[in-house]
Amino acid sequence: MLTIWGRENSNNVKKALWCAAELGLNFTHINAGGAYGKVNEEPFRSLNPNGLVPLLQDGDFVLWESNTIVRYLAAKFGQSPFYQQDLQARAAAEKWMDWQTATITGSFRHIFWGMVRTAPEQRDMALIETAIGEMEQHLNIVEQTLAKQPYLSGEEFGIGDIPLGSFIYAWFEMPIKRQPRPHLERWYQRLCARPAYQKAIMIPLT
């Protein structure tokens, strides 16, 4: 039995929920974190001492860290091209997973918290504008890649698209000015056409 812990409005939890939906998995979802609490209580802390979501339980096996959960689900339940069997093709897709965490998360957090979770009169617009500028620079790299291939994972949709894809919905939904990027926008529209993306990602920003 699979169980995914984490509030559905968390961008990192969305990765796990989207991946599970893409794979057509049967699982139990337990809202935790934020207004739902639970993460500072037992049994959650005994499962994840970090007190963070998402958390995956697969029988007696427990796993945390969102990108690792996506890799695990894809490796166990997925098939090519979603989870490439060729080592180099899989590594080329997976690099985008680590890139999202290391490069995108910091700037995105300032924008998201500022524009979505902070009252307008309390926003630090200088910080937000700086973060938007950083995001624009990062997304230039994505634009250049998507000019050569339809997905970050390559010619077909795969695990490399999930981390940034989980964040990019908010990027396009937040009331901010964005530079036009036709290749990024086409990629985003392809994601929006996927039923699993609609179910797990395209929910109100909170």
Rank of each mutant, 00 (worst) to 15 (best):
P43E: 14
F44Y: 13
R45C: 11
R45L: 12
S46K: 13
N48P: 07
N48M: 11
N48W: 03
N50H: 08
L52Y: 09
V53C: 03
V53M: 09
V53F: 11
V53L: 10
Q57T: 05
D58V: 13
D58C: 09
G59V: 02
D60W: 09
F61C: 09
V62T: 12
V62P: 06
V62R: 01
L63V: 06
W64N: 11
W64G: 03
E65H: 07
E65S: 10
S66E: 12
N67T: 15
T68A: 15
T68H: 01
T68I: 04
I69R: 09
V70L: 00
V70N: 04
V70T: 05
Y72D: 09
L73N: 11
A74S: 03
A74N: 01
A75T: 01
K76H: 08
K76W: 07
F77H: 14
G78Y: 02
Q79H: 11
S80C: 09
Q84Y: 10
Q85A: 15
D86P: 04
L87A: 10
L87H: 14
A89T: 01
A91Q: 14
A92S: 15
A92Y: 03
A93T: 05
E94M: 12
E94G: 12
E94H: 03
K95F: 04
K95G: 04
W96L: 10
W96T: 06
M97Q: 15
T101K: 02
T101G: 01
A102Y: 05
T103G: 03
T103M: 04
I104S: 02
I104R: 04
I104M: 13
T105Q: 02
G106L: 14
G106A: 09
S107T: 04
S107K: 01
S107N: 06
R109D: 14
H110D: 00
H110P: 04
H110E: 08
H110W: 10
I111V: 15
F112G: 02
W113V: 05
G114C: 09
G114Q: 11
M115W: 03
M115I: 10
V116D: 01
R117E: 12
T118E: 13
T118K: 06
P120H: 02
E121L: 00
E121I: 07
Q122M: 02
D124K: 01
D124H: 03
D124F: 02
T130C: 08
A131H: 07
I132R: 12
G133Q: 05
G133T: 14
E134N: 15
E134C: 00
M135I: 04
E136M: 00
E136N: 13
H138M: 08
H138Y: 11
L139F: 10
L139A: 03
N140G: 04
I141C: 07
I141R: 07
I141H: 14
Q144H: 12
T145G: 00
T145L: 13
T145C: 10
T145H: 06
A147L: 02
Q149W: 11
Y151E: 05
Y151M: 10
Y151Q: 07
Y151L: 01
L152F: 15
L152R: 08
L152V: 03
L152Q: 09
E155R: 08
E155L: 07
E156F: 02
E156G: 14
F157I: 15
F157S: 01
G158K: 00
G158V: 10
I159S: 05
G160Y: 05
G160D: 03
G160E: 10
G160V: 06
I162S: 01
I162T: 02
I162D: 00
P163I: 12
L164C: 11
S166M: 03
S166E: 00
S166D: 12
Y169G: 11
Y169S: 03
Y169D: 04
